[in-house]
Amino acid sequence: MNVGPGFKLTHLQAMLLFALAISIAFGFLSRRKPIERVKYIVWSLFLFLLIGVGIGWAMYPFSR
């Protein structure tokens, strides 16, 4: 990651940051208790990454 005039992130880094930010926001907005929030954040993050990587592999045959 090169932080200069513009952030240069790899695809995976961008997806990780995006998924983490959204999962944290969803966790805090939809749950009250801290333990429930943590569970929701971890589960949401896992599903974001799983589905993101899954869609990536599903598109692989059409990439060239």
Binding site: L17, F18, A21, I22, I24, A25, G27, F28, L29
Partner: peptide
């Protein structure tokens, strides 16, 4: 959480 996540994005 809202301030930080929206700000970071």
């Amino acid at each position: 959480a809202c301030f930080l996540t929206v700000g970071v994005l």
